[in-house]
């Protein structure tokens, strides 16, 4: 009987993942988990009756509570993998049947990415997407080594012509750090966000100061508060904190000297 149970479990989890992949190309993940939950709670009611009808039931099945929970967890893990696989598949196909309409700035983004790829290097652009929340701003994630050349291209290329650097922000995600450069072209009023990632132990991003002088103090501020080093910067020292301060205050793991402050 226990073997049967286990076989049932395996079969049903397989069915579950298949259904998940089918559902995923169209629906959100939340709906998935929601569908899982009512079905399994309905089944807990059936538990006392017998194990047989649960084979006929749609989703995860197990006669007792513990194996059912394990099955649920396993199904969730497999569903997550399936979701990731489906998402990767959908992205690489450029998902023509996506429910979201493609952004109006998408062609511009593709053009820009193609330009960067052809003029700088094939792997310069790690990721490129449209930030719909922010009035469809194109966001391009650039590889750290190629950042100088990409920045030079963004400024001097006649179609891009991003001569105005608005803002440089440093963000500390706990796994890595990132600098976001917001550029705008004063003629075409087109704005871009360029992101450069770097790791946390020795964070370092090529400085954009030789290209846009605005970056000078902005990068000093990021160095001061977050600790990202900018080789190529003419004057890398602390700007807000006193010169002999130890530590970088804006980091997530910063321990203030005086806890009451």
């Amino acid at each position: 009987m226990s073997e049967n149970e286990e076989q049932n479990k395996e079969q049903n989890t397989e069915q579950n993942t298949e259904q998940n992949t089918e559902q995923n190309t169209e629906q959100n993940t939340e709906q998935n988990t929601e569908q899982n939950k009512p079905a399994s709670s309905a089944e807990q009611a059936e538990v006392s009756i017998s194990a047989e009808p649960s084979i006929v039931a749609e989703t995860t099945a197990a006669p007792a509570v513990d194996p059912e929970r394990e099955a649920k967890l396993k199904a969730a893990a497999e569903a997550r993998e399936a979701r990731a696989a489906a998402k990767a598949k959908a992205e690489s196909e450029a998902a023509p049947e996506e429910p979201k309409t493609p952004s109006p700035k998408q062609p511009l983004l593709d053009e820009t990415v193609a330009l960067i790829r052809s003029l700088v290097s094939e792997d310069a652009v790690e990721e490129a997407y449209i930030n719909e929340m922010n009035a469809h701003m194109p966001v391009i994630v650039v590889k750290g080594d190629c950042w100088s050349e990409v920045a030079q291209l963004m400024k001097t290329h006649p179609t891009l012509d991003c001569d105005y650097l608005r803002n440089v922000t440093g963000v500390d995600y706990e796994t890595h750090m990132e600098a976001v450069y917001h550029l705008v072209s004063l003629q075409s009023k087109q704005d871009y966000a360029m992101k450069v990632k770097t790791d946390r132990e020795t964070p370092s991003i090529a400085s954009a100061t030789p290209i846009w002088a605005t970056a000078n103090w902005n990068e000093r501020e990021i160095f001061d508060l977050l600790g990202i080093d900018f080789p190529g910067h003419p004057d890398m020292r602390r700007i807000m904190m006193p010169d002999d301060w130890v530590g970088h205050p804006l980091r997530k793991d910063y321990e203030p000297l005086d806890p009451e402050v």
Binding site: N131, N134, N167, V180, H182
Partner: peptide, 22 residues
Amino acid sequence: PPAGEVYVRIESPRGEIGCHIV
């Protein structure tokens, strides 16, 4: 607010003030 980031800017008397939220 939902997860994501945004950068908005307005014209303050001194220039362009922007707010970048992650």
